[in-house]
């Protein structure tokens, strides 16, 4: 399938961007960014209805995306730049003084593609509820997407928002959980076990599916299914099973690379595993 191959090639470049940005900055969060790269690549390059060159913070007439797990900023900035929101050259400024590419997403310097600040966890799902309510009030058909983490789902506000979205039948709200099972201090199951996430979201009144979040075909298919059920009166949750650090063997499947930058040797090793497909920034 040509389309899937193309998306996989973009995802490989996005992963290269993540590694290079975090290495250049000397800090950042590569693990979750690599793990969710397939999700945001599918969204920004295939499934989302958006116009990067005519982006407005109000999101009117377009789908909106919120990154609730703001530490995945390297991934977010890469897909924004690669899909045309701002020049890829600007990725070099990540985490540098005066940059629009703050360590965690911010709006005060006007970076196109970012609707709201995130970083302190648990808030983006609520914001996306408000955006979905406003779209409904305006009679818009556009979707609202949001990415949260599984560790982030330990925050109580996530479950406040889960109740709210179901209560208000926000069926054009499509949420993704980056379900990699890892958080800063170790495996989620050993820290504050989320148990049966699928049963939890269903019991909160959401239409829910478990997806292989690192399989581009599955990710695209799941997003299309979620969009197709827009009129069912229920918000959607796609539980994306991913590997933290996906694509780089020594980073994969461990929490150790949650928030650590690779040195130059490790960066060279990582990049040797990721095909350059669109040209490095």
């Amino acid at each position: 399938m040509a389309e899937i191959t193309k998306l996989q090639e973009i995802a490989s470049q996005v992963r290269r961007d993540i590694i290079r940005m975090v290495n250049m900055a000397g800090s950042g969060h590569p693990g979750g960014s690599l793990g969710s790269a397939d999700i945001l690549t599918a969204l920004f390059f295939s499934e989302m209805n958006h116009n990067p060159t005519k982006w407005n913070r109000d999101g009117k007439g377009a789908d909106m995306f919120f990154l609730s797990a703001g530490h995945l900023s390297p991934l977010f900035y890469s897909v924004l730049a690669r899909s045309g929101y701002f020049p890829t050259e600007e990725l070099k400024t990540f985490r540098k003084l005066g940059s629009r590419l703050q360590g965690h997403p911010s709006v005060e310097r006007g970076l196109p593609g970012v609707h709201i600040a995130s970083g302190s966890l648990g808030q983006g799902l609520s914001v996306s509820c408000g955006a979905a309510l406003a779209k409904r009030a305006a009679g818009e058909d556009n979707m609202v997407y949001v990415l949260i983490g599984d560790g982030e789902s330990e925050e109580g506000q996530i479950w406040e928002a889960a109740l709210f979205a179901a209560q208000h039948k926000l069926d054009k709200l499509i949420a993704f959980t980056d379900w990699n099972g890892q958080q800063i201090d170790g495996p989620v199951s050993s820290i504050l076990d989320l148990g049966d996430l699928e049963a939890k979201w269903r019991s909160f009144g959401w239409n829910c599916r478990v997806v292989n979040g690192n399989n581009m075909t599955d990710v695209v298919e799941a997003m299309r299914w979620a969009k197709s059920t827009a009129g069912d009166g229920k918000p959607k949750m796609l539980l994306m099973k991913t590997d933290m650090g996906k694509g780089v063997d020594f980073m994969q499947g461990t929490h150790h690379w949650h928030g650590k930058a690779p040195n130059s040797e490790q960066t060279a090793n990582a990049l040797s595993q990721l095909k350059e497909t669109l040209g490095d920034f």
Binding site: D58, M64, I116, C129, G130, A134, G156, Q157
Partner: peptide, 27 residues
Amino acid sequence: DRFIQCGIAEANMIGTSAGLALSGKIP
């Protein structure tokens, strides 16, 4: 239609308000 009952969930109310404000509503 312009009144939103949020329940005893203030954190979500503030976040939802922020999301509403983005599109031009005045929450």
